[in-house]
Simulated assay, not measured.
Amino acid sequence: MSFQPVTASFFQQPTLELARSLLGMLLVKETEAGTASGWIVETEAYIGPGDRAAHSFGNRRTARTEVMFGPPGHAYTYVMHTHCLLNVVSGPVDHPEVVLIRAVEPYTGTDLMYERRGRDRKERDLTSGPGKLTKALGITMGDYGRPLFESPLCIAEGKAFGPVETGTRIGIENSGEAREYPWRFWIGGNRFVSK
């Protein structure tokens, strides 16, 4: 199966546009065990210093957030409640913005996904959440900072899906007015969308 990764320039668009543009693209992870991939069906945008829900709120710069201050198109991975989550760094250098990949629809390597997530899972449950999809695809903290326009972790050319819907982000109850921003995007009617 050959994939055509996007070029670095794909990531040089405003964060909210990138969050939409990522829908329908293919997220691919190659590991020694094999390659697994899925169509991106849900994303969330986090717009840096002014966004109370963002790790870089107030320009907070730490070892963890450092990659967010670099060029767009790299992986920002972090652990939350034992789950590794994958974000795409967006925004120009020194504008720490990201897009969280919230859900994918399995495409290749489904056997590997079942191996990693448990054979007894329903297919919908393999990748219908940000922690589920990283486990299914084999994305780990070792992927922190990787460029997403080349192997082994990349975003590849995708396909057109149905209508894009928008709504508020999930799991950010303590972030003041940022709770209300309509910065979650998903493919309407797709059964792998997280909520």
Rank of each mutant, 00 (worst) to 15 (best):
A45K: 01
Y46S: 15
Y46W: 13
Y46V: 13
P49N: 05
A54S: 15
S56P: 04
F57I: 10
G58C: 07
G58Q: 08
R60F: 03
R61V: 06
R61K: 14
T62R: 11
A63R: 15
A63I: 07
A63K: 14
R64D: 06
R64A: 10
R64Q: 12
T65S: 11
V67N: 05
V67W: 03
V67E: 09
G70K: 11
G70F: 05
G70E: 11
P71G: 08
P71H: 10
P71Q: 13
H74N: 11
A75P: 12
Y76A: 07
T77G: 03
Y78P: 00
Y78G: 00
V79G: 04
V79W: 05
V79E: 12
M80T: 11
H81P: 00
T82H: 08
H83D: 10
L85G: 09
L85S: 08
L86D: 12
N87I: 09
V88A: 02
P92M: 03
V93E: 13
V93A: 12
D94L: 14
H95V: 15
E97A: 07
V98C: 15
V98L: 10
V98A: 15
V99Q: 00
I101S: 02
I101Y: 07
V104S: 08
E105S: 11
P106Y: 06
P106T: 10
Y107D: 10
T108C: 06
G109F: 09
G109H: 08
T110R: 12
T110P: 02
D111C: 01
M113A: 05
Y114K: 01
Y114L: 06
R117N: 02
R119T: 09
R121N: 03
K122L: 12
R124E: 14
R124P: 01
L126A: 07
T127Y: 01
T127C: 13
S128W: 06
G129E: 08
P130F: 13
K132S: 01
T134V: 08
A136V: 06
A136K: 01
A136T: 02
L137V: 07
G138Q: 04
I139P: 04
I139R: 03
T140G: 03
T140C: 02
Y144L: 09
Y144E: 10
F149E: 07
F149L: 02
S151A: 15
P152E: 00
P152Y: 00
L153M: 09
C154G: 07
I155Q: 06
I155G: 08
A156I: 13
K159R: 15
K159D: 12
A160F: 03
F161E: 14
P163F: 02
E165M: 12
T168S: 08
T168I: 07
R169C: 01
I170Q: 02
G171S: 04
I172T: 14
I172K: 14
E173N: 12
N174K: 15
